[in-house]
């Protein structure tokens, strides 16, 4: 089956103009334009670019919501099988726009996306989850390699009915997506074989390349604690009796918002719950903070606390919880937070 494809490109590759045209809003053209011509020709019976969306890089980055809404309308109308974006090479704003389009298509509309850019383009790091991205050189001089590589990936996508293989085998850059599979050899055998290769100085492939961690720099100390409103937030799972929101014992998909007078038990499945259940202040120290409040050491203890379970909970989920909690706390005039973990 030939795919119906929509191609997203910027004003430059859309042959409208350079920086002076970077402000243009999305324009829709029938068929392929610019690099799309080469791709379309290479695809043969595998697919066809039916529409091209051309958008100025400044417009997309400065009016992201408007740009996405306009592009979304087009995609909903055309209902393509696949969205292409780029190649963006090392053009940062273009890469971010390609990534933004990928997020929109993949996340909101469930349309798969193939893109191409230089590995150091910020659009890759930011949006790699949403598209299969071909690695390109850092300038448009690499167009001659980029187009056949994109064509090859699209053809493979068609041939394999969307079930693309691993990055190395298909030629796209890793997406940070971990997928389970059964292997022929058990884990212990693979470990011993890896050990033999490592001690012999032979090449081996780790099964899990170490992630790069966010390192959060501590903020400056609070100078005037006596006039500071403090809140408690915990990943130790302290919830009211009966766990009314059913916060999971592991791999939490949610957090709870409760009054500090409602502490009852822990929902956490990753530590011995006996002592926390006997006295939840051991995990969420409301008693001590109430004392400090009455002694005037802190200005005020916020009457609401937030709680989730840190046990096996995905970092991505934690980030979402934290953003929401932080926003609410700021709106409630909270100036400092004590985070307790277990």
């Amino acid at each position: 089956m030939a795919l119906r494809i929509v191609h997203y490109i910027n004003q430059f590759f859309g042959q409208i103009g350079g920086e002076e045209k970077a402000h243009i809003s999305p324009q829709i053209e029938d068929g392929p334009i610019g690099p799309g011509n080469g791709i379309n020709a290479g695809l043969g019976d595998s697919g066809e670019i039916v529409k091209t969306i051309i958008c100025g890089d400044d417009y997309f980055n400065e009016n992201a919501e408007d740009a996405k809404a306009e592009i979304k309308e087009v995609l909903e109308e055309v209902e393509p099988d696949l969205v292409l974006a780029g190649p963006a090479f090392n053009a940062g704003r273009y890469g971010m726009a390609c990534g933004g389009v990928a997020e929109l298509a993949c996340d909101e509309l469930d349309i798969p996306v193939i893109s191409a850019m230089y590995p150091e383009n910020p659009g890759y790091e930011m949006y790699r989850n949403y598209a299969y991205m071909i690695e390109t050189s850092n300038s448009a001089a690499g167009m001659r390699e980029a187009i056949p590589n994109m064509v090859k990936l699209i053809k493979s996508y068609v041939k394999k009915d969307g079930k693309l293989g691993r990055p190395q085998e298909e030629g796209y850059m890793p997406r940070g997506l971990r997928k389970n599979m059964f292997t022929e050899k058990r884990g212990s055998t693979r470990a011993v074989e890896m050990l033999i290769k490592k001690i012999n100085g032979e090449v081996f492939e780790t099964e899990y390349p170490m992630p790069n961690f966010d390192r959060v720099a501590p903020v400056d100390p609070i100078e005037d604690l006596a006039n500071t409103k403090v809140a408690l937030v915990t990943s130790g799972g302290i919830v009211p009796d009966g766990n009314p929101d059913r916060v999971e014992s592991s791999s939490a998909s949610k957090y709870g918002e409760y009054k500090i007078t409602e502490m009852g038990e822990t929902a956490h499945g990753g530590y011995d719950p006996v002592y926390a259940n006997q006295d939840p202040n051991r995990v969420l120290p409301v008693d001590v903070l109430k004392d400090l409040e009455s002694e005037g050491v802190i200005g005020e203890l916020h009457e609401i606390y937030y709680s989730t379970v840190g046990n096996g909970t995905a970092v991505a989920s934690s980030k979402v919880f934290a953003q929401e909690i932080a926003e609410t706390l700021i709106n409630d005039g909270v100036q400092a937070v004590i985070l307790t973990s277990t």
């Binding site: 989850n129 940070g176 997506l177 971990r178 997928k179 884990g187 693979r190 470990a191 890896m194 050990l195 490592k198 081996f204 780790t206 099964e207 899990y208 170490m210 992630p211 790069n212 961690f213 791999s251 995905a314 970092v315 991505a316 989920s317």
Partner: peptide
């Protein structure tokens, strides 16, 4: 994570270059 998109461990070091999962 259920979607497989989060980092898999709670701690990491570049020295861990040979990992079986």
């Amino acid at each position: 994570g259920r979607d497989g998109l989060s980092q898999s461990l709670a701690d990491a070091t570049p020295k861990a270059d040979a990992v079986v999962t």
